[in-house]
Structure formats: structure tokens, C-alpha cells
Computed example of a mutant assay.
Amino acid sequence: MWRWIRWLTLVLVALFIASFLPWSISSQAIALPDSLPAASPPESMRVSALPTGTMHSSAMLAFRGGNPLENRDFSMTAVLVQHPRGDLLIDTGFGREVDDQVKLLPLLMQLTTDYDKTTPAAEQLITQGYDLKSLVGVILTHAHWDHVSGLDSLRNTPVLVPTTEQAFISDGGDNSALARQLSADHLKSYAFVNKPYLGFAQQFDVWGDGSVVLVPAPGHTPGSVLVFLTLPSGQRLALLGDLVWQLDGITQLAEKPWIARQLIDEDTDAVRDAIAHVSAIAKKFPQVKLLPAHDAKAMGSLPVYPSTLR
């Protein structure tokens, strides 16, 4: 009996240590262009945030090597991009049924997080007098539940994903079950073109003016994307989805803790490669503002609709 207890204790200690030791990720070998890609965003383009809630946890569960005694907030925020050719919502944050959806999370995640919710993104827009018909699509950085939850209020809006993420949603797995339920009738796929963008081999320029450019960053899910925005002022934003949960993941080259990677990352090697790539971009082009989807401090720097960045 004691032999099994000692064995189990050693396994748990080993897993704990493995969760927090640094991993060798290097951004030194990433080839980047000499300048940022050209873009000509229209003068009327605007960007704003729609916060829908916050999860509360610790830095230990936010990134590898995080302090277990340091509290961290995980934002659940949709980003509205207003463009004369049609408005886009990037991710959706929490929807109306979030209380029931949280109960479907792995038990460990339920036990180690607490959350607050506000008003779903679509309802915030309606309250401010926004016409939802102006939305031509919801761009998902990936199809996990906390990024699609708010689709329950956007049943008539197309949901845009790359073909690889469409397959991920359709394959019947638990991690895409909610996306399959909420977007089945309005899912539309797009294909990347073989044109480099900041060192990525492919891109999808939504409006053809460089204002909203998507690049593939598989790993967290097979079709995860990064969203690069260029505003009329020249400001550059990079929406990182769940490549990392907190900006520390980029600045410290730190992936998610071991247990989180096992639960939700589809390809950890691909995630490490993308972290190294984005870290290299951050070093060479510090004017690009990095916004991990769940970094409350970073996402909180965006003005809340109806206030906007321009």
C-alpha cells in the first residue's frame, strides 16, 4: 500500500516540477522582413472591445513558471472591427448560457477558476443602438467554447474559420462541441493564400487593404489564427487568441503549464514554434501591440464600445 502511495507521490511531484520548469524556446532563427507590411486602412475604420466577463486564477495556471501566489485575471472579450465594407467581430466572449457551459469544463479547470460575467457582446451592441445587420461575420481565432459562447445571440451572422478549423469543428470532438452546436448553420470557411506576412508563409487579407489580415498559427487547435489589424492612425494590433494566455508567454517564451497543454493544446510543438515567431516579431517591431485573448491587462487597454481606436 505504502509503495503505491510513494509511487503516486513521486509521479505527482514529477508532473508538478515539469509544469513549471522553463522550456527551451528560441526566437533567434525566425526570418522576418525589414519593415512592417504595407496597409491602407480606410479612415472610417474603428476598433473597440466588448468585455463579457473575467475568469480568475493564478499565474501558476496561466503560463509555465508562473507564481502560484500571484492572482491573474483571464479576460473574455470580443473585439469589434468597424470597416466601411462590413463590420467584423473577432471572437465572442461569454454568451447567455455561460453558467451551464462552465459546468462542462474538465473538473480540474472548474476547481481552479472562478468567473464573473457581464452582458453578452451582441446585447451590448444592441443596447448602444448598433444594428447587428452591420456585422458581416464573426472571425474566430479558434473554436473553443469561451470564444464561441456568445454566438447564441448571433444566430444569423456568418462564422468565418479556415478550412482546417471547419474540419476541427465538424469532427465531433468535445473541444469543439459548442462551436458545432452554435455555428452549424452559418459556418463559412476561407482559404489562405501563399503570400508571406511577417514571416508567416500564408495570409488571408479580409478586405484586401491590409487592415485585417489573418495568418495560420496551428497548435492550440488545428485552425488557430492570429489577427493583425492596422488602424488609420498607423497603430498595429496583433490579436493572439490562445497562443498564450498572458503576455508573459511571449515576453518570457513560456508555454502553458503542462496540465493545460494536455487538456487543450492539439500540437504543443506547433504552439512553441508560433510563440517563438511572435516573440521575434515583438522584438523587431515593438510598435505592434500584442493582445492575447485572455490577458485582462492587455485587452483592457482597448477602448470599450462605443469608444473606439482609430
Rank of each mutant, 00 (worst) to 15 (best):
residue 77 T to V: 10
residue 198 L to D: 00
residue 84 P to M: 09
residue 250 I to K: 03
residue 97 E to P: 04
residue 212 V to G: 06
residue 253 L to I: 05
residue 193 V to K: 11
residue 193 V to Y: 06
residue 58 S to L: 12
residue 38 A to G: 15
residue 223 G to S: 08
residue 16 F to E: 13
residue 242 D to T: 07
residue 3 R to N: 11
residue 144 H to N: 11
residue 79 V to I: 13
residue 170 S to H: 11
residue 136 V to Y: 05
residue 3 R to Q: 11
residue 213 V to F: 13
residue 17 I to D: 05
residue 233 S to F: 11
residue 309 L to Q: 10
residue 294 H to P: 02
residue 242 D to Y: 11
residue 128 Q to T: 11
residue 300 G to A: 12
residue 35 S to W: 03
residue 39 A to G: 09
residue 69 L to P: 04
residue 14 A to G: 15
residue 63 F to K: 00
residue 208 G to P: 00
residue 300 G to C: 11
residue 71 N to Q: 14
residue 303 P to D: 01
residue 273 D to F: 07
residue 301 S to V: 13
residue 28 Q to F: 10
residue 307 S to E: 14
residue 176 S to Y: 12
residue 80 L to R: 00
residue 86 G to T: 05
residue 245 W to C: 06
residue 254 A to S: 15
residue 168 F to P: 00
residue 8 L to S: 09
residue 279 S to R: 03
residue 27 S to Q: 01
residue 21 L to Q: 08
residue 26 S to E: 09
residue 68 P to L: 03
residue 302 L to N: 02
residue 281 I to Q: 04
residue 310 R to H: 13
residue 71 N to I: 05
residue 170 S to V: 04
residue 31 A to V: 14
residue 136 V to K: 15
residue 169 I to Q: 04
residue 210 G to D: 02
residue 262 Q to P: 03
residue 182 L to R: 04
residue 67 N to Y: 03
residue 99 D to H: 13
residue 247 L to M: 03
residue 125 L to R: 02
residue 160 L to M: 14
residue 34 D to N: 14
residue 171 D to I: 08
residue 306 P to W: 06
residue 206 V to C: 05
residue 161 V to M: 10
residue 234 G to L: 03
residue 186 H to A: 07
residue 30 I to P: 03
residue 5 I to F: 09
residue 223 G to C: 08
residue 80 L to W: 05
